[in-house]
Simulated scan of single mutants.
Amino acid sequence: MNVSSAHGSVLGSTVGILPERVGAGRTRDARRLLARDGAVVLTGWECSADGLFAAAAGVLGSGLRQLFPPRLRRAADAGPVHLHADSFDVLLDVGGVPVRQRDPDEDHVLVQCVDAPVSGGASFLADAYRFVDDCREADPELWAFLTGYDVDLYGAWAGQVRGLPDTPRVARHVEYTRGGRRVVRRTDGAVPLHRDPEAGHVRAMLDRFEKAVHALEDGLPRFTLAEGEILLLDNYRCWHGRDAHDGDRAVRILTLRTADAR
């Protein structure tokens, strides 16, 4: 296998991505690298929620359409987080007005390092487009499932999360926006549709998909974020995860939709 160590490149025949770092004054470069690689690390922005919003506006500019409330995630001595794409469906009633907190079609994610752990916690990324393209020949049955079968994206969490709508969110793992942008989903909440006659097959393929994705993780390149650094992802193209860590770790997460979102 021909493995390149160049930052920002897809590594050989694998799906790993190692994002480049770009300073706050180089927003055009950040936009170009995001389009090329699906991910970029932004440096030099204020380590705060305001800095996170400023970075999103600076790089994505007039394409921004909807930003969701930032989430501060703290964890101590935590286990690994497997590869996934951010998406959820949360709707609140605030003073009688429906307010969307999360959206199944969030197309970009920003993860800002607030506190780095004592050890571990390295991040890793996979190019989901490459994974699906490779599946077409390496595992045609899995490819057919990802591109051709409807699932309930969040059915595994039904009745467990307040604000999650009762109506099933039906979608395929691989879909396209009206403008032709490909969406490749990866969530632990997917289950077969209610009374799907092929429910057994769907469960088997969901398990196969999960195992195939987890099998990628050990071979992916690792990188760490310093305090204040921001990982900006194309959420339709990239899956992200992190290793287990010792000590406290805190990140601030901002998800959003742009004009190109589904």
Rank of each mutant, 00 (worst) to 15 (best):
V59E: 06
H214P: 00
G58M: 01
R73M: 12
G120V: 10
E229Y: 05
V41S: 08
G163T: 09
L254I: 10
L42D: 03
R31E: 12
H201G: 00
A56F: 04
R74A: 14
D139S: 12
G61E: 11
V213D: 01
A55W: 06
V22A: 06
T187Y: 00
L193W: 05
R28N: 11
H82G: 12
E46F: 00
E106R: 05
D248G: 10
V97H: 14
G247F: 10
I17L: 15
V174I: 08
D248S: 11
D29G: 03
Y154Q: 02
K211H: 13
L233I: 03
D152N: 14
F68K: 05
L64K: 04
G163F: 08
L72E: 13
R208S: 06
G12S: 14
A75I: 03
E175D: 13
R100I: 06
V97C: 02
R178T: 12
R208I: 02
C47A: 15
L52S: 07
A226F: 00
G61N: 02
R262S: 13
S48W: 09
A250K: 13
H214G: 00
L232C: 07
V41E: 07
R195S: 14
D152P: 05
H201I: 04
P192A: 05
R182P: 01
V251Q: 08
A171K: 01
G95Q: 07
Y154G: 02
G95V: 09
H245Q: 03
R249T: 06
V161N: 07
T258V: 04
S87Y: 06
P221G: 11
A6Y: 03
A158D: 12
A6I: 12
D234K: 00
L11M: 13
E227W: 00
P98E: 12
D115Y: 02
S48I: 11
G63W: 00
Y129N: 06
H108T: 13
A116F: 03
D134T: 07
C47K: 13
V151R: 08
A244T: 03
P165F: 10
G241Y: 08
R195K: 11
L142K: 05
V10K: 12
R32Y: 06
A55Y: 04
D188I: 10
D89Q: 10
A126Q: 02
V41Q: 07
V114D: 03
D115C: 08
E141H: 11
L164Y: 07
F145V: 06
L60F: 02
C113H: 01
A250T: 14
